[in-house]
Amino acid sequence: MATTTSAAAQRQTGTDAIIQCVGVHKWYGEFHVLKDINLSVRKGERIVVCGPSGSGKSTLIRCINRLEEHQRGQIIVDGIELTNNLKNIELVRREVGMVFQHFNLFPHLTVLENCTLAPIWVRRQPKAEAEATAMKYLERVQIASQANKFPGQLSGGQQQRVAIARSLCMSPKIMLFDEPTSALDPEMVKEVLDVMIGLAETGMTMLCVTHEMGFAKSVADRVIFMDRGEIVEQNTPDEFFTNPRSERTRLFLSQILSH
């Protein structure tokens, strides 16, 4: 069993893989949340992860910047293996941006300070330089006019765009999105998706857990379907939506696309 899975992993592993998961397992106590995950992501690839709730998709991308620990297998990000080595974890996190479902902006700092905090304290940039970079990204997500407001004064969609800009200020090589539009009012979903589509066009490596199938169709290079802790199916969006191979995928798609 172990040999076949690692062989499968070898097959997927391209030379330009920026994320490699090989035989990853994770348990929450007795609950087996990730089962033998093998995944390889090329530089510049845009991947959408979908699946029913509790299928382990958020846990998977949270393992990639070690917000969660995996108990078995290997995760290698940008050439660095994630282990208990704190220095390595911090090195990886610098290069991996993360956008959360509930934004997690720092409420005691202004929008601009939210964006400059990490560049100043982690990258040790001069304040003026960090602020210039921050304003550039805030302009890109079209929220530069709110730079001196506090997060509590912004709408959900605006907060999520600030959160994206905050991650981009660290010039990450990879961006992880953990259901970025799930906590938003319907009319604000589009403004966030537009920013993400714009980001995809710049060639950013993106891993996105989302239920926005329109986004998956238009942007993703590959769609990964997870159920009960396993990767059930992965394919191009065209194949995935028109010609799903497994019964579980078909059931899931019929449930979310029925209306």
Binding site: N65, L67, M98, F100, N104, L105, H108, M170
Partner: peptide, 29 residues
């Protein structure tokens, strides 16, 4: 909120800086 710590750590801030710059200023209130 634990999400504050996660956000700070995922930006690459050390645990000390996370406590000092993100958690304590909010805890004080």
């Amino acid at each position: 909120n634990w999400g504050q710590t996660e956000a700070a750590r995922s930006l690459g801030l050390s645990s000390g800086n996370t406590l000092r710059l993100v958690v304590l200023p909010q805890a004080l209130r």
